[in-house]
Design a protein around this nucleic acid. Structure first.
Lengths: 102, 102
DNA sequence: TCTAATACTATACATTGTGTAGCGATAATG
DNA sequence: CATTATCGCTACACAATGTATAGTATTAGA
């Protein structure tokens, strides 16, 4: 009982990130591509609203899961932090489950 | 590129389940308690809307992740299927990440 | 029989996500 | 150097989703 409550609290941080629509898919791209640009994601993911994408990237930055670096005064690219790369095992286990039951 | 697209598609099944608000928390309870009742979840999770809970349970049933069995004509309990138990590794990896960065 | 719990549903509202358009700035092309 | 395309977003109105609160029929327990 107490155990249960404790463990549920502990999953929350991950669900707050991965629970948002598109976020797991986005992170997948980061893992495959190392550095990613805004419009690259738009093209690859297909169907994501730029406003939503913008919100996700900002949120991921705020949580230190990705970093934004400018390649010129107006163009930028994003890449995973260590914290972000640590999500890889989660994404892998999701992939395994998905493959088994797709 | 082609690889990326393939892999993203593969994560989708898991995100469709775990991406909905509350669902990972719910599943956590199933794992700890084996069989769970509607109001038990309401109490344990705290704050989940019964309408939302109802929708989640129906969805999980539709995806063969839980089964519903009646203990009387109007009372029932839910439990994980094998497919549902296979989500345990995902939840564990989410827990690990959460613990590391909470 | 009375009370409390179970497993929900109903309604109105708040929050979140979407489609489409567009904008200022920069990079590529001719 | 002028034109065109691309980049990284924002704005708007709308659709979908989740929430607070209340309520319902049934039933288990005292």
């Amino acid at each position: 009982m107490t155990v249960a409550t404790t463990q549920i609290g502990c999953i929350k941080a991950a669900t707050e990130i991965l629970g948002d629509k598109w976020t797991p898919q986005l992170l997948r791209f980061f893992i495959n591509e190392e550095t990613v640009r805004f419009c690259q994601i738009q093209d690859l993911v297909g169907g994501i609203n730029p406003r939503t994408l913008s919100a996700r990237l900002t949120q991921l930055e705020d949580h230190d899961i990705i970093t934004k670096s400018f390649t010129s005064s107006s163009r930028c690219e994003y890449q995973l932090t260590e914290k972000g790369r640590d999500l890889l095992p989660v994404l892998h286990s999701m992939e395994e489950w998905s493959n088994k039951y797709a």
